[in-house]
């Protein structure tokens, strides 16, 4: 870790070489989508209503919220029949700062109408091979990965068995979903880092399906994937939920959970729900963290190494 005196905080934390590589890789990503006929779009960063998430907080400002993802606006474009679209933009998550997190970061998000989640995963793999030159990713279900690398079944193992796997004394009062989150970052990610290579985790537990379709199972799972490269969580994709009523119920449940967690409920984007109601096509979509992609491509240990001015200098 480098130490800096306070007076040097005016300086960028990324080197000129890193910023040149950053520009080159982002240009390569644009070229990848242009070659495939995917339209680049720009949607608002400043929103008056959002898609509430239980564990993500969009920063509040005088006129609304800074978006934590361009998801609802992009899906409105899909509902309007604008076809395959992508966007590279800054997104915001209050209070997230660490080796792998900055409260403002660069997101690549794209949507493929008429595609299945499996087709989209192939495309994510293609992009990764072009940018990171990594081998083609393997696929494991969420359950298989936990059985293989952690030695528990997140759907069925007794909570006591799961608690026994945590490396340090865990906080009190963790339910199955929180304990699974903790084991993911405490056990699974380090194991994936140690093993190296790229991996899709699929079929997430349906306790938090977010905006993905649900497969009734058993086990009941969300049609969702996360891509990991060398243990770094890089991209989150969905077979997009098309049912406006179901989506609205999920938002309401999330806002109730936020209240219980001591968080403010968030106003729901009704334009997005109207767009789903108007007839949303079968569609797969994915969001990918560009800064983390750059960390992997340039072999940097900290997200601050690939951002000109991270939070403590912004």
């Amino acid at each position: 870790m480098t130490t800096t005196s306070p007076t040097s905080l005016w300086q960028p934390s990324a080197t000129l070489d890193t910023l040149k590589s950053r520009a080159r890789i982002i240009a390569k990503i644009r070229e990848f989508f242009q070659n495939r006929g995917v339209l680049e779009v720009t949607t608002p960063v400043l929103l008056s209503t959002v898609a509430p998430e239980r564990y993500q907080n969009p920063p509040v400002c005088q006129n609304g919220y800074l978006h934590s993802s361009p998801e609802t606006a992009m899906k409105r474009l899909v509902a309007a029949g604008y076809g395959s679209i992508f966007q590279i933009c800054q997104v915001f998550r209050a209070d997230e700062a660490g080796r792998m997190h900055n409260p403002e970061f660069t997101m690549l998000e794209w949507y493929r109408p008429e595609w299945s989640i499996d087709e989209l995963m192939l495309e994510v793999g293609d992009l990764m091979q072009e940018v990171l030159h990594c081998s083609s990713p393997i696929t494991l279900t969420f359950r298989q990965a936990f059985q293989k690398y952690v030695g528990i079944d997140p759907f069925l193992s007794p909570l006591a068995d799961m608690l026994a796997k945590v490396s340090t004394p865990p906080p009190d009062g963790l339910d199955r979903s929180s304990l699974t989150d903790l084991l993911l970052v405490d056990q699974l990610e380090p194991a994936l880092k140690k093993q190296g290579g790229s991996l899709f985790l699929v079929d997430y537990p349906a306790w938090d399906p977010a905006m993905a379709e649900v497969d009734p199972g058993p086990p009941k799972v969300a049609k969702r994937f996360e891509m990991y490269v060398d243990g770094v969580e890089l991209a989150n994709g969905y077979q997009e939920l098309r049912d406006a009523h179901e989506q609205n119920q999920r938002f309401e449940k999330i806002n109730q959970q936020r209240l219980q967690d001591g968080q403010q409920p968030l106003p729901v984007d009704n334009h997005f729900l109207d767009a789903l109601s108007s007839g949303f096509p079968r569609c797969a979509g994915v969001a990918l963290g560009v800064d983390r992609l750059l960390m992997l491509a340039l072999q940097k240990e900290r997200i601050n190494d690939v951002i000109a001015f991270p939070n403590d200098r912004a």
Binding site: Y55, Q56, H101, S177, S178, D208, E233
Partner: peptide, 9 residues
């Protein structure tokens, strides 16, 4: 600081 994208921090 550790956090799964959609999960608890």
């Amino acid at each position: 600081f550790v956090k799964p994208g959609k999960g608890q921090a």
